[in-house]
Design a protein around this nucleic acid. Structure first.
Lengths: 185, 185
DNA sequence: ACTCTATAAGTAAACGATTATTTACTTAGG
DNA sequence: CCTAAGTAAATAATCGTTTACTTATAGAGT
C-alpha cells in the first residue's frame, strides 16, 4: 500500500461526502468538512469529482447502488421486499436521507439512480387489482413510513417507545402484513 | 390602510418565508430573498421573528396549521381523509415540502406542529386489525407516496404521463381503495 | 384643533464569519 | 526526472446579523 493512492483517496472522499450530505443535505453540506473527514483537502475533491454538485450526485448514486445490492428487487414477493427495505433503512438512515434530500434539492439528479432499481420491481408485480406503478409507489412508501414519521410524534401519540426494538419489530410485522394484503395476498 | 402596518408586514414576511423555505429548505433558504419577496428588508425579519431559525419554525407552524384547517382530521373515515390529504398536497406542494425539510434539517421543530393534528386522527382509528399508530403512519405515508416519487421515475416506469390529471385521479382512486382495505373495509 | 413628542415602523449600510473554487507550490514514485 | 498525488493559502462572493439612522403615527397637553 503506497503512501499515495488515488483510488483509496477517492473512496475516502466519496464515503465522507455520503455521510456529510446524508446528514446535512446539499445546501447544508460543506466541502471542507468532507475533505477533513476524508483526511485530505478540498483540492482533491475538485480533482476527482469536479465540484460540489458532481460530488453530491456521485454520493447519491453510490448510496443507491449499495441499497440495490443489499436489498435486491423481489417483484415476486413485494411483502418480503418491503420487509428487507425496512430493515435496511433501520440499520442505516444514510440512503433514505440522501435520497430524500436529492428529491427536494436536486430533483433532476434524484430520478436516475433509483430508476433502474425500482423499474425491476415494477416489472412484474404479480396479480394485484391495482396498477403496477401505483403498487410500487405504495410499497416503497410504506417501507419508509416509520422512519419518515417525526420521532416526537411517535413518542407522544404511541403508548410505546418508538426506539424499542420490540416496537420496531411490531411495526415491521404490520408492514409486511399490509403489503401482503395490498398485493392481493 | 396606513403606510405603516406592522401586522401586514409580518404576514408578508411569513408568507414569503414559507415559499422560500418550502422551495429551498432551511440551509438553502436566504433571509434577504425573503425580505425582497416580502417587499421589506432583513431588519424587519429580525424585529418580528428574531432570526432565521425562528422564522423557519414560524413558517412551518403556519403551513401545518393551514393544512389542519383545510384537511380536518377524519378518524372515522381514514380513506376519505387520505383522499383529502392527497388533493391538498396535489394543489400545493408547499406544506409537504417544508414538513419534509423540517424532518431532515430540524427534527426537533418538526414534531410539535404535526403532533396535535395527527394525534386527533390516531385517537379513534375504528376497527382495524393493526395498531392505531401503525395505521396512522401508513395512511399518512400513502397519501404522500405519489408526490415523493421522483417524477423522472414515474415518467420512465409508468406507461402514462404522471402529470396527466386522469393519471393522478387514477392514483387517487387506488389510494382510497388501498386505505379502505387497510383499515378493514 | 393643534402642536409636540415618544415610540413604533422602516431603511441602508456595514460587519464578521463562511464558503466554493482556484492558483501556486511541494513531494513521492516509477 | 517527469508526472501524478497531495498540500497550503488566497480569492471572490455570499450570508446571517447588527448598528446607526430616518420617518410616520397616535396620543397627551395646551
Amino acid at each position: 500500500m503506497p503512501a499515495r493512492n488515488a483510488e483509496a483517496t477517492r473512496t475516502r472522499i466519496l464515503d465522507a461526502a455520503l455521510a456529510e450530505f446524508a446528514d446535512r443535505g446539499f445546501a447544508g453540506g460543506r466541502v471542507d468538512r468532507v475533505a477533513r473527514a476524508a483526511e485530505t483537502n478540498v483540492r482533491m475533491i475538485y480533482a476527482y469529482f469536479g465540484g460540489k454538485d458532481a460530488l453530491f450526485d456521485a454520493a447519491l448514486t453510490s448510496a443507491i447502488e449499495r441499497m440495490a445490492a443489499a436489498v435486491p428487487p423481489r417483484p415476486a414477493d413485494l411483502a418480503a421486499w418491503a420487509g428487507d427495505l425496512f430493515d435496511f433503512h433501520g440499520s442505516d438512515a444514510t440512503t433514505l436521507r440522501i435520497a430524500l434530500w436529492a428529491q427536494l434539492e436536486r430533483p433532476e439528479a434524484a430520478a436516475e439512480p433509483l430508476d433502474d432499481y425500482l423499474a425491476k420491481v415494477s416489472a412484474v408485480t404479480g396479480a394485484s387489482p391495482l396498477d403496477a406503478v401505483d403498487v410500487l409507489t405504495f410499497v416503497y412508501s410504506l417501507a419508509q413510513a416509520w422512519y419518515l414519521t417525526p420521532i416526537g410524534l411517535l413518542l407522544s401519540a404511541d403508548g410505546r417507545d418508538p426506539r424499542d426494538p420490540a416496537r420496531v419489530a411490531a411495526h415491521r410485522e404490520a408492514l409486511v402484513a399490509t403489503v401482503h394484503r395490498l398485493t392481493g395476498k
